[in-house]
Design a protein around this nucleic acid. Sequence first.
DNA 1: TCAAAAGTGTTCACCGTACACCCATGG
DNA 2: CCATGGGTGTACGGTGAACACTTTTGA
Lengths: 248, 248
Amino acid sequence: MIIFKKNVILPVFCENLPHMLNNYSKEDKVLLAVDCIIFGFDKEELKILLIKRDFEPEKGKWSLMGGFLKRNETLDDSANRILHHLTGFHNIYMEQLYGFSKVDRDPAERTVSVAYYALINIEEHNQELIEQYSARWFSISEAPKLIFDHDQMVNHAIRRLRYRTSNKPIGFELLPEKFTMRQLQKLYEAILDEELDKRNFINKINGLDILIKLTEKDMSSSRKGSFLYQFDKEKYDKKVEDGFTFKI
Amino acid sequence: MIIFKKNVILPVFCENLPHMLNNYSKEDKVLLAVDCIIFGFDKEELKILLIKRDFEPEKGKWSLMGGFLKRNETLDDSANRILHHLTGFHNIYMEQLYGFSKVDRDPAERTVSVAYYALINIEEHNQELIEQYSARWFSISEAPKLIFDHDQMVNHAIRRLRYRTSNKPIGFELLPEKFTMRQLQKLYEAILDEELDKRNFINKINGLDILIKLTEKDMSSSRKGSFLYQFDKEKYDKKVEDGFTFKI
DNA sequence: TCAAAAGTGTTCACCGTACACCCATGG
DNA sequence: CCATGGGTGTACGGTGAACACTTTTGA
């Protein structure tokens, strides 16, 4: 057993340890950026929304949508603000990903960037705003090379999205409110990048018992038409309270 | 009363380089802290290493070990530096957790903190350094209330540790090089906070085929003695290359 | 000889997966 | 009437979980 000395504060300070200073004034400050990987789904493919950067450095190149943290906002606030600017929406699903901090990641100035990923219903984006930013949806496989370490951020986001969709029902954020089983399956196939068996998929989803089957049909995809479903958030929340864990 | 310097923005860089058309100069800069949740395991319980803060604000309270990011280092560098100061070791297993950014999280000054968690072999820590910092190991359940949002960081770290130990063999970082099956099981029980069946556990571990069973026995725990094992990193790495995924 | 921990296999239930045919409809 | 996508159920194997007794040896 290890014996600890209690309450001993040695007067000898380790000089190069920042926390030992009695105020923060000597510490370096940095610019803190927030960059957003914005995912959408267009019925077949997983896409990301990129902007054409209109300022130096790297002007004219494709980039994630980003901005800098302001003094009076949290990182989440900042990501929300950035997403709002580009899409016009509030309450977008988003999650903090990771902090990227290579010293020379931005050649203009030392900047640390915290990446967020967001999920939006691709049908609802605001076309005007997107044009204002020269933004464009790219399927993941056809996306251009991005500036700085943004490609790395995107890869990180895809990994996280895969993990997250398999234990939280966030996939629905990428779909319209009403969707067919087929669309849901295609979405999961796009995210997981693998084909799924139709019957097993439907059995699994129905087994979760968190969808409402509507009487309406979507007649656009076939002659027979396919039933529309809705995510039942209330039911899901209740089940989670009772110990249910989403798993797909 | 100590007066802290406010966030003074010095737009020197950009003013001296007018050809660089970036608009970074108007942006706020922040102090970027790195705080480390350091886990250890003492054969029975999962523990964290806390320090008694010896400067204002919150002097004398228990806190995570932390520091500030320096201009010329990455977040990982910074975490490594901080861990090295407290433990004397390099090459400690660590992983970035999450960025905490509540505007008033540190009452002294606007600070964003990126939390890291680290795993160390509790038997190898440097007693002198730990005393210098008035540091102490606390079992998770008996840890005191921490300053700022550090409790939240710890909770986050425990969740991540649980997840990570179930898909990467990082548990071994917390054990001595040679360990018994019993110790390994106790470790997993401590991390997952649930009891495991001895036979099932051993079958599962043996099924992974990533341990070397030594001929040595640990005679300290019983009259019969129990065989010692070692993690076979080479074998594990080879298996991973061949598509093996650790899962426990 | 007894106490205390080490070590060892089998059975069963459930879940994930593979797999094929009929239905409804518009053209 | 036919082409197209929609919708449905079962069988099998593998994995995870439950479960109890023997071995060793120092005191």
